[in-house]
Amino acid sequence: MILSVLKNPIKILLIFFAVSGPAHAQTDIDGLMMQKNFFCVGPTISKSSWKNYWEGTFKRDNANLGTVSTTAAMIMGNYGVTDKLNLLFGLPYIKTKASAGNLKGQKGLQDLSLFVKWVAKEKKIGKGNLKAILIGGYSAPVSKYYIDLMPLAIGMHSKTGHLRVMADYEMGDWFATISGTYMLRSNVTLDRNTYYTTEMHYTNEVKMPDANDFNFRIGYRSSTWIIEAIADKFTTLGGFDITKNNMPFVSNKMDATKLGLHVKYDTDFVNGLSFVADANTTVAGRNVGQSTSFGGGVFYILDFSKKKKEETKK
């Protein structure tokens, strides 16, 4: 049988073929903030691939698909309203393909993500500084992509609300960041009037389970380099397993544990220019591909501050 993503997204969201997370500047998932009236923007590109996957908790492969790969190109931006309040966005273009079989991959714009990031509390503890950060976000599809062909669909077409609580502790050039996210997902519709999960449904509407995500990162952070190790655990709050030798479905239970590495270099030859690189691998999962992902990006910071404008006038 044929085995039939975000963020995302997601994202910046985990989807079945496990797209690599986008490269990081100051993003919704780290403890960094953009300065007031500064705008950081740039493109990223990542590639994720897997051959083995978990059918429920059973690990297997699928010769009808071979290796499933996903390429994601994204434009990201972060504007500092104040030093403690940032507005962020991300928009990915996704392309999927399988190395075997007759299923054709898909491509197109996926979901636009918008986030508000706020430092709610900052306090000196011991020799370091602790920040409590709240992040709220919303993502929604910007194209009418087809979702009923997993894992070659480019997304799930579900409107999603995000609420994240984060703590970031920095002591000198060393830091640790932990966060937890709740994702409230809207129902989606199929291009057919019946479907089967664990029972027959005579409708085209599919109820999507909500999800949560826990992220921990630790590493080195200076004015020039950021090097961090990352652990991430994504869990859907409901759903059902892929049945034996069957296609996955958009409302399956999808759990994944990933380990990764992120590196950022702020150049000294061009002020405001930085390069980022990411890698991660899925070490445990349920109804997801055992993906390995690599990505990179280039970012530039634009200064819209009043001080900069006054200097320009002079």
Rank of each mutant, 00 (worst) to 15 (best):
P151V: 13
N129V: 03
K144G: 09
T203G: 03
R164Q: 12
Y138I: 15
A153W: 04
S179R: 05
K144M: 13
S143T: 10
K207M: 15
L152G: 00
I147G: 00
Y202E: 15
P141T: 04
G137T: 06
S139E: 09
A132D: 12
G137F: 14
A167D: 10
T197V: 01
Y138W: 15
V119R: 10
H162V: 12
S158I: 08
Y145D: 00
I147C: 02
T198R: 15
R192A: 08
E122L: 03
P141S: 04
G161Q: 09
S143N: 11
S179L: 13
R192Y: 05
A140L: 14
A167K: 07
R185M: 12
F175Q: 03
V142Q: 00
M183S: 04
I147T: 01
R185A: 08
P151I: 14
V188W: 03
K123R: 13
V165Y: 13
G180W: 12
E199K: 14
T198G: 13
M183T: 00
S158K: 08
A176D: 04
A120M: 15
K123I: 15
L184I: 14
F175I: 02
D210H: 04
D148Q: 09
D148S: 11
E205G: 06
V119T: 10
W174S: 01
G161W: 13
I125F: 06
A167P: 09
T160Y: 02
L163E: 13
E199D: 06
T160R: 02
M150H: 12
A132Y: 10
V142R: 03
Y195H: 01
E199G: 11
I135N: 03
K131S: 05
T160E: 03
